[in-house]
Each structure stands twice: as structure tokens, then as C-alpha cells.
Design a protein around this nucleic acid. Structure first.
Lengths: 200, 200
DNA sequence: AGACTTATCTATCACTCGATACAAAAGTTG
DNA sequence: CAACTTTTGTATCGAGTGATAGATAAGTCT
């Protein structure tokens, strides 16, 4: 049936470059010229592979989530709810100041507010942030079942608190805060987290 | 010497409209067309009054700070460090979900990351956020002097923590979270705050 | 080889961006 | 009123926006 000319660039490699551009400049601030230059391809190749600028962002977000899933798996594997919280905020402090990436969090600075043709980008990013919060919440529900989290504790509230602090750390990191500053925020935040099961 | 034709629009009123546009769409996402339409003036009037799009943003930020100063004054007037923290996060929860304004915080969603000619906008916003944190820090230093905050407490760390949570609440609110959700985050966050002076 | 399918490149599309030139209008001052 | 100063509206500037048309190149399949 004839397979056609094969793609001459590595889509994943190109996505990594696009991700960095979106990360550093946000959706509106990332122009096609910047993206194609960073990806090393021409506009028609970009559109053939990803459909549109928005499609490219979604693909980059998928890849971002994929990168993070490994870390998140480690976080959720913590033996207790509190250890999960410790791991979560610690990994946020490290990843948001990783010199290999732009400072901050793609899901935060990618676009909280956008221009006239991009109204759904903020929704897209919010949905991805909500997913991380949901994973934490489920883990804490499990922890309460297991008994390492007090029955009075509110898994949803704790997950939302941690997710909110993580977003705040993203904002902080985006403005150039160093790793130690984020660690300190993590440390203070953790004193809001239940230390042990008060029941049974 | 002839005073010239007087301005035919209310600059403060126009700034309020511009502020809302920047708030809802971010700096990059706010186009001159949107701004002039919202402000009810034509581009030459805008440029005569504010110099540039960036100048307009800074004027809007000044006005935003002016609005907030009243709230912040009330917050800092809290009798104890802890009460200051309570007032701070409570006022954030209310203001970030005030139906009279776009959800969230102008200083957060105004532009964490911008395009190629706007690199200094994120700096500008970060500086304004840092100012609020500095005010909290100074208040906590004062509280430690006054003895209502333990000598072991770290005013800088506490201020940064609260500021970070506030930013996170801004992110949360921007994605449509309701007031009760923000209040809950505030409540959990406050359990990280020292309850009383452990010394003396 | 030859037919077929898809990717890539050059050039460019229509449109919007932020910002201005120019002339008419509206006020103040002598 | 007449001279002067500043604002306002119309029209538009050059540059950059996201996206595409059409021709060519590079592979696979029979």
C-alpha cells in the first residue's frame, strides 16, 4: 500500500524542545517561529505532526505528564500519608528548580489566562493539575483505610492543600527563587500535615 | 500659556477596565483592541496617557496595589502574628473569589511567563508579589520582638510560606475553585502556623 | 523499476499585533 | 476673538501571527 516518506525528525525530541518553549514563555508567548526554531523543523512539518499550536501543546503536556509519572509513582509509594506528603513537596522543590528545565511548573506558567482564541488552554492545564491532586486524594483515602491517617482527617482537603502549595511553589520558582527557598516552604507546609494517627 | 484640550475620559475608570482585561487574559493575551474597547478610548488616547502597553500595565498594577493596601492594612493590624496570618489567608480567599473581579490574582495570572518583547513583565509582577511577602515578614519580625511569636520562629520562612500559599490559592481560584475550597485551604494552611508563643 | 503515499521545503496567505502620523476638535490664556 | 496647547478620531504603519498551497523529495509496496 506504500508507506510514504518517513518522518525525518524525532517527534519526542522535538516535543521536548517545544515543551521548553511553552514552559519558558507560556502558550500565548510561544510563537510558531520560536517553536519551529527550537524544534528544528518547518511549520508544515509541525502541522502535519501535531495539527495545530494547541495540538502541539497537548502533546507536550502528555509528554510532561509522562515524565512526571515516574516521580509521582515514587511519591505515592510512600509508606504513610505523611511520608507521601514529604516526598511530594520535596520532589516539587527539586523538580521546579531543576537547572535542566525552565524554573517553575509548566502546568502553572503555561497559561493561567490566555488571549482570545485560546480560552480552553487554561482549562486544559487546570485539568492536568487536578489530576495530580486526585492521585494524592486517592492515596490519602487509602491511607485512612489503612489506618495511618486519622479517621478525622480530610483526604480531599489535605490533597488540595498540598496541590495548592505546589502551585504556589511553581509561582515562587518562576520568579527565580532558589531550591533552598522552596525546601523551606515545603518544610513549613509539612507542619500543617497530621503527624500520626491519633485514633485506634 | 494655554492649557490644552482636557482629557475627555476618567483615567481611573479606564484603568479599572484595563486592569480587568489584564487580569482575565494576562499581559500577552490582552490585545490593544480588547483594552481600548474595554476602556472606551482609542489607541492614541491610550498611548498619550500611559505611554505603552507596558506602561498601562504598570499603571493598572499601581491601582491594584492601591486597592489592596486597605485590606493589607487591616491584615497587618492583627493583634498577634497568628491573627495576622488568619486575616491574610482569609482575605485572600475572599478577594480571589470576589465576583466583582476575575477569579484569581492579577499578580499571578497577569503573566508568569511572557513572549519575546515582554520579558520584564514577569519581573514586574514578581516584585509586587515580593512586596506583600516583605510586609508580612516585617510584621512577624515585629511580632517576635513583641513576644507573641516564639524566638525560634522564622519570620522570613513564615512570610514566604503564607505568600506561597496565597499564590497557590490564586492558581486554584483561576481554575474556577469556589470560595469554600479556598477557605478550606486557608484553614489547613493555618495549622502550619505556630499557635502561640512557646517561650518566656 | 514503477506506482503510490507521505514528509519536507519555499513562499506566502489573510489577519492581528503594538504603535503612530496627521488633521480636526476642544479647551485655556492673552 | 485670536493664539496656543493638548486630546481625539481616522486611517494606517511595518512587523509578526498562526496556518497553508503547491511543488519536490524520500521513502515503501507490488
Amino acid at each position: 500500500m506504500a508507506m510514504g516518506r518517513p518522518r525525518s525528525f524525532d517527534a519526542d525530541k522535538a516535543l521536548d524542545e517545544a515543551m521548553e518553549v511553552f514552559w519558558r514563555h507560556g502558550y500565548d508567548g510561544a510563537s510558531l517561529a520560536m517553536l519551529t526554531k527550537a524544534m528544528g523543523i518547518k511549520p508544515p512539518s509541525l502541522y502535519a505532526a501535531f495539527g495545530s499550536k494547541e495540538g502541539l501543546l497537548k502533546a507536550a503536556l502528555d509528554r510532561y505528564a509522562q515524565r512526571r509519572s515516574a516521580h509521582m509513582h515514587y511519591v505515592l509509594a510512600g509508606p504513610t500519608a505523611r511520608e507521601v506528603a514529604v516526598r511530594f513537596l520535596s520532589s516539587i522543590a527539586e523538580s521546579h528548580t531543576d537547572p535542566a528545565n525552565p524554573p517553575g511548573c509548566l502546568l502553572v506558567q503555561g497559561g493561567l489566562a490566555c488571549g482570545e482564541g485560546s480560552e480552553n488552554i487554561p482549562f486544559e492545564l487546570a485539568a492536568r493539575r487536578a489530576q495530580g491532586e486526585a492521585e494524592l486524594r486517592e492515596r490519602f483515602v487509602q491511607a485512612r483505610h489503612d489506618g495511618d491517617l486519622s479517621p478525622e482527617a480530610d483526604p480531599a482537603a489535605l490533597a488540595r492543600f498540598l496541590s495548592t502549595v505546589a502551585s504556589g511553589m511553581g509561582v515562587l520558582a518562576s520568579s527565580g527563587a532558589d531550591r533552598e527557598a522552596l525546601r523551606e516552604v515545603a518544610r513549613v507546609s509539612l507542619s500543617a500535615f497530621p503527624k500520626r494517627d491519633a485514633s485506634s
